[in-house]
Design a protein around this nucleic acid. Structure first.
Lengths: 338, 338
DNA sequence: AGGCCGACTGAAAACGTTTGCGTAAATAAA
DNA sequence: TTTATTTACGCAAACGTTTTCAGTCGGCCT
């Protein structure tokens, strides 16, 4: 089977490769008559231009990369959904890379992306990442980058986030208003900027209500879920006075539910729980979980839009293009007043 | 800033481009001494080969495509996770395309992939797809394809699925043994092969237990979630004798939960529910949901492995390489006997 | 008639890499 | 010594596309 490319099309049409190429790109330099002929044969033979030849020649790949910790997480899944939508609308392809929150993997992925495989990058940094040299060095190759959710403060570019500080504040205040006095904060890794913001919101809400924050009530979760369950169990047993839990990430809220059931603590009578979560089934949990829900789809879509716009205009992305979308507090039974 | 490519490396090293290229690919045709020199400069300058030039020349992109209906679904998210893992291990990149169960989108995506952008394709067909000409035509370009979960029976290639018939049978039998006598089956679209298998398992289990299947109890869900809720509500009101629900897809199980709560039907006392689901929080629902859980991660990983093996060996993929992984039934309170 | 312009097309270079082939020197075999 | 063989490297073509440049042809203006 002869390959169907510009050359073969040109031969069959008794035209030059150049003319065929121009005809297909609808150039004004080619007569309408030949355009029609060319298009007819192209569709008849199911011609599709070779993406790599085109990318090589034009130095543009029409592809964006997405580097995220994981995909089996409703937040990131929704974000990808938004990203793919924005990309598709502009004719971009989406390459996915998972770091599994592992620093070494993130570095390897970023290094690989220097090969020019992508025109731009969307990134949510791994929680294990403390050194950002790899990202800076990628940025130095002039690759446009937009961070979303888990941003890297040290790199000057646009970031799409939620109002993490306010959300942490609101969640804590919500627990306080529901009558909690000893509120634990479960977060995942305090070197992540979002963790810090939420933590600060938590602290400020406590002091604003006349309470003194107790460092013993702040639990740093780890990667492994079972370990988290153990840590939470230990915390709840050591501090039976805890009457409220604010979980900065979905997984920890779920783990807290499991521990409470195991220890026989009733939700919300003994302990009230609120957590960041994009879980669709939150309202079906036992009891329905109060959540701070981030507009994950919009975050992904807006981040992709900013990136693609910059790629198309070949302009640098400025930190001033950053976007902060508001998350929403859904009050459900897990934080009902007694 | 001068570009760092083979040419610039060669100039600085006073070598030819060919030698530099061979040195980096560790060819035996180049002396160890020069290899060392070349590698040193390459790493010093952070050289990364241009992926598109390489792909064009070698006619290999080290990229696989993944075409799925959606990503905001725990099954597909886990599958992607497995796919990415297998791909990463073999140095492959993963392009993601979402069809949103829309036939037209699927066709457009498949057409686009003819441009040679990917070396192989993993696919779970859209539920709206009834004509498979686009897939066949893609297969005719010799692009290796492996289907997973939602397979296309008409295309001769490997398929990675779960034991859908047996699962449907088991789920139904499980409800029967829990005392149900009027069991509804909620499925998504009966033109999908998996729906048919599960439906057949459902039917056979009923007849095997001496019951006559009632077509009125089989509900075909649609895309829109709200419509599904309305349909289920209508069904439960029209047939108050229904005492068991088998949901072929997670979304329908969730919708059924909502409807039951709304109508005041107690689970499991009035109605028992079991559903296909990869929801992590299934055990935390109210009541905990009995599920048939597919090994989504493994499905993705195995499908990717089969695909990549075929790509590397440049051998056709045979239907005989198909794999059937077993799903697992988790019995929880939603199907507890009264 | 000469010059000019616009419409259309083709030749060829370029993108960065890989690779078949050639070749020179060095080594081994005869 | 001559003749193979090996080693190490360079030349140049090729992958399929895009784009610059040059060219042809007819028509229009002065």
């Amino acid at each position: 089977m002869t390959p169907v490319n510009l050359k073969s099309l040109a031969e069959q049409l008794h035209l030059s490769i150049a003319t065929v190429s121009r005809a297909l790109r609808d150039s004004h330099e080619v007569s309408e008559a030949t355009k029609v002929r060319v298009r007819a044969l192209a569709t008849a033979l199911n011609y599709e231009p070779n993406a790599y030849a085109s990318s090589l020649r034009r130095n543009v790949s029409k592809t964006i990369g997405v580097v995220i910790p994981k995909v089996a997480n409703h937040f990131f899944a929704l974000a990808i959904n938004g990203i793919e939508e924005a990309a598709r609308q502009s004719g971009y392809h989406v390459l996915i890379y998972l770091t599994h929150d592992d620093y070494a993997r993130e570095v390897a992925i970023v290094q690989h992306l220097k090969g020019g495989r992508v025109d731009g990058l969307l990134m949510s940094v791994a929680s294990g990442t403390e050194d950002f040299a790899h990202i800076k060095s990628l940025k130095d190759t002039n690759l446009p980058i937009v961070f979303f959710d888990r941003v890297c403060a040290e790199v000057a570019t646009a970031k799409v986030t939620t109002n993490d500080y306010e959300s942490g504040y609101q969640a804590t205040e919500h627990l306080l208003q529901a009558g909690c006095r000893t509120i634990a904060h479960l977060l995942i890794s305090n070197n992540l900027s979002i963790g810090q913001f939420r933590q600060q919101g938590y602290l400020d809400a406590l002091t604003a209500h006349g309470l003194t924050p107790d460092p013993d009530l702040v639990l740093n979760g780890v990667m492994d879920n079972e370990q988290n369950v153990a840590l939470i169990r230990e915390l709840l047993q050591r501090r039976p006075d805890i009457d409220g839990i604010f979980a900065s990430v979905e997984r920890l809220a779920i783990s807290a539910y499991h521990v409470c059931k195991e220890l026989g603590r009733r939700i919300p009578e003994d302990i009230k729980i609120i957590g960041f979560s994009n879980l669709e089934a939150a309202s079906l949990l036992d009891p329905p979980l109060s959540t701070i829900t981030q507009p994950a789809y919009d975050i992904g879509r807006e981040a992709a839009k900013i990136l693609i716009r910059a790629v198309e205009k070949k302009k640098d992305i400025l930190p001033s293009q950053s976007l902060v979308l508001n998350s929403e507090l859904f009050q459900r039974r897990s934080t009902a007043s007694n």
